[in-house]
Simulated scan of single mutants.
Amino acid sequence: MGPPPTVEEGKRTVEIRKTRRAGLAALAALGLLAAGYGTASAGTGVRPAEAGQERPEAGQQKERDEAADDFESTLELSDGRKVHVRLVEGTGAQERHTTAGSDKWSKWQTLYKTESDRCQGVDLQEKDGTVSLIADFGRFCYDGEPPMESIAGVGTEDLTEWDIDITEGFDGWEDSSITSEGSKVLFVYNSDFGLYTLRWDQSEGFSEIDEPEEQ
């Protein structure tokens, strides 16, 4: 394989419109531990599978303020650093981070540009300094419509550069798993057709999506 794809090169289109089964996807990820993938510390934020959950009623300002967390997530890494990812309407996915022991954030950098609506949920996980990101965008996605642009991202070292893969027309990655040394990441989605996986390798970047065999 060549070098990690750019955002444009990493775009894929997969036609899947089935009900999410996040629990099964998590079990599938655990089943792949034998292949060398380890569990990671979970980030904050609403899981993508909960995109259709009820929104706060109008007039409930406090609940609306709390709902802002639906579109961002902050994770403290094992070495004391912090990473913060937010989905910005009309802009896309942005990231900032701190150094260990510091409260000073870096400037926001845009990991993926899009004018599509934000989906609820930003998932961050980390192992040995490698951070995985799952997020989605799509028209009316915050109201429960399925995503149209699904992000799988990996940040390493000082987090100034990220590998980003975009899949279009896809229901979104449900979970990720990182090897204990942080050199590989596995993204999973379990559909009614079977398990879809996307692998990231430190030396090779993102692979092609492994799709279930036709029955």
Results as ranks from 00 to 15, higher is better:
residue 125 Q to E: 11
residue 3 P to M: 10
residue 170 F to I: 13
residue 61 Q to K: 12
residue 91 T to D: 13
residue 188 V to Y: 07
residue 122 V to P: 09
residue 202 Q to I: 05
residue 173 W to L: 14
residue 122 V to G: 05
residue 28 A to L: 01
residue 23 G to C: 04
residue 20 R to K: 03
residue 129 G to T: 03
residue 204 E to S: 11
residue 23 G to M: 11
residue 100 A to V: 01
residue 108 W to F: 14
residue 190 N to V: 03
residue 208 E to I: 06
residue 94 Q to N: 01
residue 124 L to D: 04
residue 164 I to T: 15
residue 41 S to V: 14
residue 19 T to C: 08
residue 80 G to A: 13
residue 37 Y to E: 00
residue 136 D to E: 08
residue 55 R to W: 10
residue 42 A to I: 04
residue 103 D to T: 11
residue 73 S to M: 09
residue 109 Q to D: 09
residue 186 L to C: 04
residue 56 P to Q: 04
residue 43 G to W: 08
residue 140 F to K: 15
residue 199 R to E: 10
residue 191 S to R: 10
residue 150 S to W: 02
residue 113 K to E: 15
residue 143 D to Q: 02
residue 154 V to N: 09
residue 207 S to G: 07
residue 9 E to V: 02
residue 177 S to Q: 02
residue 196 Y to I: 02
residue 3 P to C: 14
residue 147 P to R: 01
residue 82 K to R: 15
residue 121 G to S: 12
residue 69 D to N: 14
residue 156 T to Y: 06
residue 195 L to I: 01
residue 163 D to P: 00
residue 9 E to Q: 15
residue 204 E to C: 00
residue 139 R to H: 13
residue 36 G to K: 04
residue 80 G to H: 08
residue 6 T to C: 08
residue 163 D to N: 15
residue 39 T to W: 12
residue 210 D to N: 13
residue 70 D to I: 03
residue 209 I to G: 02
residue 112 Y to C: 02
residue 205 G to W: 13
residue 54 E to H: 08
residue 189 Y to C: 12
residue 137 F to D: 12
residue 34 A to E: 07
residue 186 L to A: 02
residue 85 V to K: 11
residue 40 A to L: 10
residue 172 G to K: 03
residue 160 T to F: 02
residue 22 A to P: 07
residue 131 V to A: 04
residue 104 K to Q: 00
residue 180 S to D: 14
residue 158 D to V: 05
residue 145 E to W: 11
residue 189 Y to S: 06
residue 177 S to D: 01
residue 97 H to Q: 05
residue 136 D to S: 14
residue 97 H to E: 04
residue 208 E to Q: 12
residue 8 E to C: 06
residue 91 T to C: 06
residue 129 G to N: 08
residue 122 V to K: 04
residue 126 E to V: 09
residue 187 F to M: 12
residue 212 P to M: 01
residue 7 V to C: 02
residue 153 G to P: 11
residue 127 K to H: 05
residue 182 G to R: 04
residue 123 D to Q: 05
residue 30 L to C: 00
residue 94 Q to E: 15
residue 98 T to E: 07
residue 137 F to Q: 10
residue 187 F to K: 00
residue 136 D to I: 04
residue 171 D to V: 13
residue 172 G to S: 08
residue 105 W to E: 10
residue 109 Q to F: 05
residue 41 S to A: 14
residue 165 D to G: 12
residue 49 A to H: 14
residue 121 G to A: 09
residue 87 L to N: 08
residue 84 H to D: 12
residue 117 D to A: 07
residue 22 A to I: 06
